[in-house]
């Protein structure tokens, strides 16, 4: 169980990134599948070549942020739909990741008889992997980032970011450069995803070009499950819920495998089904009513509709300012 919680806490960083785009920015960002590997691959190749593991991990974060920047520029400057912009980055990154790793994978255990130093080396040597000590360390990291995001969202810039996702028209009228808030948020989001990938590569002892595939669903599942548990009424709880959701999600998967309900290869299908079920539950008035009754109806506010971001061709901020079709009642 400790191993599952450890994984959940590492993927919590990815889920926090997905939370920022999916929930705050209302931007369906699939860059995640590529930027996770970019972060993991960058960190792995650096450590494989003897770079300090903390520096390498930080480089993974930076590489992820760079991926977010690309998606941000594709969307804001070239006016490409969010979903398509992020798919383009994700697909392009596959080739870039192969280049970064100079092959489909990088091992992080031994090189020429020497142990490759990673951030987990001291824990491995002390035989503390899959222990409560490691869980505590990773929990501290996840909670530190949770606190940082809660703080960020309450700053002037954070409020501007929230308004960008919530009501773009109001944001622009309020003097917010929605291009800028989107780019910055995509960079922070994918930076977290890259960091998650960097830590996960060290955790599992290798980076692989396939390691990011399907992780957007893992992130979404964590966000939806977490928000269902802790609610979205208070921002702090909504963010914390993402970490809780990530751990719960891992535990569900590990029990499904341990009890032989599913095989390791079924993971992606389970992820997809879990997201479908969670979305249906959160969108269905009747079921939401039951859930609301069960989870104590003390909240005076109606539960948030947990809708998926618009996956249609509609641009995130409506018609562009220079588009004559945006004129109403002229």
């Amino acid at each position: 169980m400790e191993a599952a919680i450890e994984q959940g806490l590492i993927f919590a960083l990815l889920a926090l990134g997905v939370f920022l785009t999916y929930r705050i920015l209302n931007f369906a960002d699939l860059t995640v599948d590529g930027s996770f590997t970019t972060g993991g691959g960058t960190a792995a190749i650096l450590m494989y070549n003897g770079v300090d593991p903390y520096l390498g991990t930080l480089a993974g974060l930076a590489a992820g942020a760079a991926a977010g920047l690309i998606t941000g520029l594709l969307h804001t400057k070239l006016r490409i739909d969010p979903l398509l912009a992020s798919i383009l980055t994700m697909i392009g990154l596959y080739s870039i990741n192969l280049r970064i790793m100079r092959g489909p994978n990088v091992g992080l255990n031994m090189r020429d008889g020497q142990v490759i130093e990673t951030i987990f080396t001291p824990l491995k040597q002390a035989k503390l992997m899959a222990s409560w000590q490691t869980v505590a360390i990773l929990a501290a990291v996840a909670l530190a980032f949770t606190a940082a995001i809660i703080w960020f969202l309450a700053t002037n810039f954070g409020l501007a970011t929230q308004a960008t996702g919530d009501n773009p028209q109001m944001a622009v009228a309020g003097g917010i450069s929605t291009d800028w808030t989107k780019i910055v948020t995509l960079m922070i989001s994918n930076g977290l995803v890259g960091l998650s990938g960097a830590i996960y590569a060290q955790f599992q002892g290798f980076a692989d070009v396939q390691m990011g595939i399907g992780l957007i669903l893992v992130g979404l599942a964590s966000v939806i499950v977490g928000n269902a548990i802790l609610g979205t009424r208070y921002m702090a709880l909504a963010v914390l819920g993402v970490v809780v959701g990530s751990v719960v999600y891992r535990l569900i998967l590990s029990y499904a495998i341990a009890w032989e309900i599913a095989a390791a290869g079924d993971m992606k299908l389970i992820s997809a089904l879990l997201v479908v079920v969670a979305l249906v539950i959160s969108q269905n008035e009747t079921i939401r009513g039951w859930v609301g009754k069960i989870s104590a109806s003390k909240s005076p506010e109606a539960p948030e509709p947990l809708t998926a971001p618009e996956l249609s061709a509609q641009p995130a901020e409506g018609p562009t300012p220079l588009d004559p079709s945006s004129a109403k009642g002229a």
Binding site: F152, A154, T155, N156, F157, G158, L159, A160, Q162, A163, D166, N167, Q169, M170, A171, A173, G174, G175, I176, E304
Partner: peptide, 29 residues
């Protein structure tokens, strides 16, 4: 619906209005 941000609180909306046209940094909203 157009002039306010529905998921933000009254005071958060006012903070956005207050910083209209100014550079928005990492100060407390």
């Amino acid at each position: 619906q157009a002039g306010t941000s529905p998921h933000l609180t009254i005071e958060q909306n006012m903070a956005i209005a207050l910083t209209r046209g100014a550079r928005r940094g990492l100060g407390v909203g």
